[in-house]
């Protein structure tokens, strides 16, 4: 009995020390977040917390590299922010929108870029985890994300987990020169590269209902907040015969009366391969041409 109580004492002692360390660490890191001055997390914090965009562009790296906000500025009178993020998927797009609304932002127009095979793979939650340092509990309130990752809610009770692998970035970003928030638009053009011809055909992946759900959830959020929604699939440098994700997107948009612009297979804009850096991404010239065309078509 004595042996057991001794062990229990050690375990309790460890837990108390860990809890204290976790809270102190969390307090310190929150301080860093409040004093961010530059870097990727500064940009993220600005886009999510400080900026009040009129037009929001959601999507993966394709959105980030394809939608030139300067060109779009000619169509909209207000701040346009591109929230496109490398490696993200529909879960991330939803979480960003939910977070903006939670922060009290009121965008008038949301543009969502849907990739081929958008709903064909499991959610990539690590990209969502990249938002945690800015706002740990975001969008978990309604437990929407919890449906896919039930343990994320529990994990976030640990402050250290929230700042996982951002410690050095955060500390580094609180020093150095102050970044100009006026230049932050989220659009990151890709330089042209040597012309490469692609002639691939996307596989016909199965749909993940969990992922389709998040497009419907975005539609629901926009409807409930009276936000105009446009869905688009920007150009892709491959001959895609059939894609279930695109079909599901078309169906959802048609059902909800949402404009869907599909640029696959040169359907709307015949961009030659030389405007792509790879099969999925336009270079800066291609992005300009696409954005101009998109701007003309958008209702």
């Amino acid at each position: 009995m004595h042996l057991k109580s001794n062990l229990i004492f050690k375990i309790v002692f460890c837990l108390v020390v860990l809890f204290t360390a976790d809270r102190v660490f969390g307090f310190f890191m929150n301080y860093q977040v409040r004093h961010l001055k530059n870097g990727g997390l500064f940009e993220l914090k600005y886009k999510l917390v400080d900026a009040n965009p009129l037009v929001v562009i959601l999507g993966s790296s394709r959105a980030c590299h394809h939608y030139n906000t300067t060109i779009l500025q000619n169509r909209f009178n207000g701040k346009i922010i591109n929230y496109g993020e490398d490696g993200s998927d529909i879960v991330y797009y939803y979480v960003v929108l939910a977070q903006l609304l939670k922060e009290g932002k009121k965008p008038q127009h949301v543009i969502v870029d849907i990739r081929p095979n958008e709903f064909g793979a499991s959610p990539y939650l690590n990209v969502v985890a990249g938002l945690y340092p800015i706002s740990g509990e975001m969008s978990l309130e309604g437990n929407e994300l919890g449906k896919i990752a039930p343990y994320e809610n529990i994990k976030l009770h640990l402050y250290s987990y929230r700042f996982n692998n951002h410690v050095f970035d955060l500390i580094g970003a609180t020093h150095g020169p102050l970044e100009d928030t006026g230049t932050i638009t989220g659009y990151k053009p890709l330089p042209p590269r040597q012309y490469t011809m692609y002639n691939g055909t996307e596989s016909n992946f199965e749909l993940h209902d969990d992922m389709v759900y998040y497009l419907k959830a975005i539609v629901g959020l926009c409807k409930s907040h009276n936000i105009k929604l446009t869905v688009c699939t920007s150009p892709y440098n491959a001959n895609i015969v059939r894609d279930r994700s695109i079909e599901a997107t078309e169906e959802i948009c048609m059902k909800n009366g949402i404009q869907y612009l599909n640029y696959l297979n040169n359907g709307l804009l015949g961009l030659p391969s030389r405007f792509f850096v790879d099969e999925a991404h336009l270079d800066t010239n291609g992005a300009d041409m696409f954005t101009s065309d998109f701007m003309a078509r958008i209702k």
């Binding site: 460890c14 020390v17 360390a21 996982n164």
Partner: peptide, 21 residues
């Protein structure tokens, strides 16, 4: 014992702060 327990806590904190999940 305090070295042991401190090490245990340090490893857990290192995993939480810098582990790749």
């Amino acid at each position: 014992i305090f070295v042991r327990l401190t090490t245990v806590c340090a490893i857990i904190m290192a995993i939480l702060c810098f582990g790749v999940f």
